[in-house]
Amino acid sequence: SSGGSSILDRAVIEHNLLSASKLYNNITFEELGALLEIPAAKAEKIASQMITEGRMNGFIDQIDGIVHFETR
């Protein structure tokens, strides 16, 4: 797709992000992006959206560029 990722790509990214949230206590956007094979800024945006929508527990430290995952 030309304008970003398809629905399937997005679903795969979100699935992998949720998997990462179970493996890590926290991770930088750079590391997360590398893990998900997407730019760091996109990793931040998707993580932020999932947390806001209540689909993933955690919070974002924008100063240090880190996602902190919280286990249920």
Score class of each variant (00 low, 15 high):
I63S: 08
G58R: 01
E70Y: 14
G54W: 03
V12L: 11
V67K: 02
I51Y: 02
G33S: 07
I51F: 08
T28L: 03
H15M: 14
A20K: 06
I13M: 07
K45C: 11
N16V: 11
G65D: 03
P39I: 04
K22P: 02
N16D: 06
E31R: 08
L8R: 11
V67I: 15
F59R: 13
D64Q: 15
D61G: 04
I7S: 12
G65A: 06
S21L: 08
E44F: 14
Y24L: 07
T52P: 00
E70C: 15
E31F: 07
H68T: 05
P39G: 08
A34H: 09
G58Y: 02
S6P: 13
Q62H: 15
R72Y: 12
T71E: 09
E44G: 14
Q62D: 09
P39S: 13
P39K: 05
D61M: 08
I7K: 10
I66E: 05
K42S: 14
S2M: 09
I38Q: 02
S48D: 07
L32E: 00
L8P: 13
D9Q: 07
A11D: 11
T71Y: 09
A41Q: 10
K22L: 09
E14K: 03
G65F: 05
E53S: 09
F29E: 00
S5P: 12
Q62A: 11
L8K: 11
H68I: 10
V67A: 03
A34F: 10
T28V: 02
Q49E: 15
F29M: 06
M50R: 01
A47V: 14
L23F: 09
N16G: 11
K45L: 14
A40I: 06
E53L: 06
E37L: 10
G54A: 04
N26G: 06
E14W: 05
G54H: 06
I27F: 05
L35T: 02
P39A: 06
N26R: 14
S5K: 09
T71H: 13
G33D: 00
G4V: 12
M56A: 04
V67H: 00
A20T: 07
F59C: 10
F69D: 00
E14A: 04
E53K: 05
E70I: 11
L35S: 02
K22F: 09
T28K: 05
M56V: 10
S21H: 04
E14Q: 04
K22G: 05
M56I: 15
L23N: 08
S6T: 12
G33A: 10
K42E: 15
N25R: 14
I7T: 11
I63D: 09
G4E: 14
L36P: 00
N16Y: 13
N57F: 14
V12Q: 13
I27C: 07
L32V: 01
M50L: 11
N57S: 12
E30K: 09
G54P: 00
A20S: 05
M56H: 01
L36R: 00
N26F: 15
G3Y: 04
G58T: 01
Y24W: 07
S21P: 02
E30Y: 08
L17P: 01
F69K: 00
S6M: 10
V12E: 10
M56S: 01
E14P: 02
H15K: 14
E37R: 15
S19N: 13
P39L: 04
I51L: 07
H68A: 04
S21R: 03
R72P: 12
N16S: 08
T71S: 12
S2N: 13
M50F: 04
D64T: 15
E53T: 08
L17R: 02
K42T: 15
E44K: 13
H15R: 14
S48I: 11
I60T: 03
S1K: 09
D64A: 15
I13F: 05
L8N: 11
I7V: 13
K42Q: 15
L32N: 00
I46T: 03
G65L: 05
D61E: 05
